[in-house]
Amino acid sequence: MAYQLIQLAVQPTDNIACPHCQQQVIDWAEEQYIQPCEHTLFIAMDIGFEYITDEFETTMRRNVDDLHANDDQVIMLDELKAAAFDHYVIYQSDLGIEGYSRYIGFTA
């Protein structure tokens, strides 16, 4: 398995830090709350991407445009887990909408 899935026990409005550099990659104190660091591969929700590196996108089965165009048929976690990227960690947290999650990928 190239990835590790870690389910975070945080509230939807909690900040989330990079496990490597401790930068807040989700920082609700900032107007632009998405603050990816050099270790962040993607920030996604079940309804689409908020951020993704080209490096990670090229390892996915489908590109982001295709996923967004067919978002009613996409299971985001399955798409992220199927990527051929070597060794990454997926943090999963509650999005605050019942049944929806946020996924943050970091280099391992």
Rank of each mutant, 00 (worst) to 15 (best):
I90L: 01
S93F: 09
I26D: 07
R61Q: 13
R61W: 08
C18A: 00
A82I: 09
A84T: 11
L67G: 04
I6G: 05
R102N: 09
S93K: 12
Q23N: 15
W28C: 08
F56S: 06
D86E: 14
D78K: 08
F85Y: 15
S93E: 10
L77S: 04
L80D: 02
V10E: 12
D66P: 08
A17E: 15
E98S: 13
L8H: 02
V64Q: 09
T53I: 01
M45G: 15
Q4V: 15
E50Q: 15
C18P: 03
Q22D: 15
Q35N: 11
T58N: 12
E98D: 13
N70D: 14
I43R: 03
K81N: 05
F42K: 03
V89N: 11
R102I: 14
P12R: 00
D27R: 02
M60E: 02
Y91R: 04
M1H: 09
D72Y: 10
W28T: 08
R102T: 10
L80A: 00
Y33S: 07
Q11D: 13
V10A: 12
A2Q: 09
L80T: 02
D65E: 14
F85H: 12
T13Q: 07
R62S: 14
M76W: 00
A83N: 04
G105I: 01
F106D: 03
D71V: 15
T107Q: 09
Q92E: 14
L41E: 00
P19I: 06
G96S: 01
Y51I: 04
H87G: 11
E79S: 01
G105C: 01
G99F: 00
L41W: 03
T13Y: 08
Y51T: 05
F42T: 02
I34D: 10
I43Y: 06
N63P: 08
Y91D: 05
Q92T: 09
N70R: 09
Y3L: 10
I43V: 14
P19H: 08
Y33N: 09
D65A: 11
M60G: 03
D72H: 13
F42H: 02
K81D: 06
C21S: 00
G48D: 05
G105Y: 01
Y88L: 02
H39L: 03
Y100K: 12
Q23Y: 12
A17T: 14
E57F: 04
D78F: 06
T40C: 03
A108I: 11
H20Y: 10
S101L: 09
R62V: 12
D78V: 07
A2F: 07
M60W: 05
Q32R: 07
Y103E: 03
T59Q: 06
Y91K: 06
N63S: 02
I104P: 03
N63L: 04
I26L: 08
Y103M: 01
A82R: 07
T107Y: 06
L8A: 01
P36I: 00
D78C: 07
I104K: 00
D27M: 01
L5C: 03
G99M: 00
I75T: 15
A29I: 10
A44F: 05
L77I: 11
Q4A: 12
M76D: 02
D65Y: 08
E55W: 06
H87D: 15
Q24P: 07
G48Q: 04
A69E: 15
R61C: 13
Q92M: 11
Q11A: 11
T40Q: 04
D78Q: 11
M45D: 12
N70L: 05
P36H: 00
E57I: 04
D72G: 07
